[in-house]
């Protein structure tokens, strides 16, 4: 019962985090939203009984991608401009 509730709540949270990543004007906040999405996705993989994929997703998606995005944002501009 609890597991099914988590199965319903987690994808909704993933979609919310992805929407935040698209809508944020501050690019650092968008990168953090992408990291949160990856972390929730790795939790979902763990609940679906794939711990291998969960570890890989947590390592690559939540940490290395964020580091690369933060480095790229620091080399360019932080705020998104209005199109």
């Amino acid at each position: 019962m609890i597991l099914e509730g988590i199965h319903i709540i987690l994808p909704i949270l993933i979609v919310v985090a992805a929407a935040f990543a698209v809508l944020m004007k501050d690019l650092i906040a968008a990168a953090i939203a992408v990291a949160a999405m990856s972390l929730l996705l790795s939790l979902e993989f763990y609940i679906l009984q794939a711990p291998d994929v969960a570890i890989a997703e947590a390592g690559v998606g939540a940490c290395l991608t964020t580091a690369i995005l933060v480095i790229a944002i620091k080399a360019t501009k932080r705020m998104e401009e209005d199109a």
Binding site: I55, A56, G59, V60, C63, L64
Partner: peptide, 17 residues
């Protein structure tokens, strides 16, 4: 669970930190 790729990604994350 885990293996070369997963553990390597974790160590690389620490180095990136």
């Amino acid at each position: 669970p885990g293996g070369g790729f997963q553990g390597g990604a974790i160590v690389a994350s620490g180095c990136a930190m």
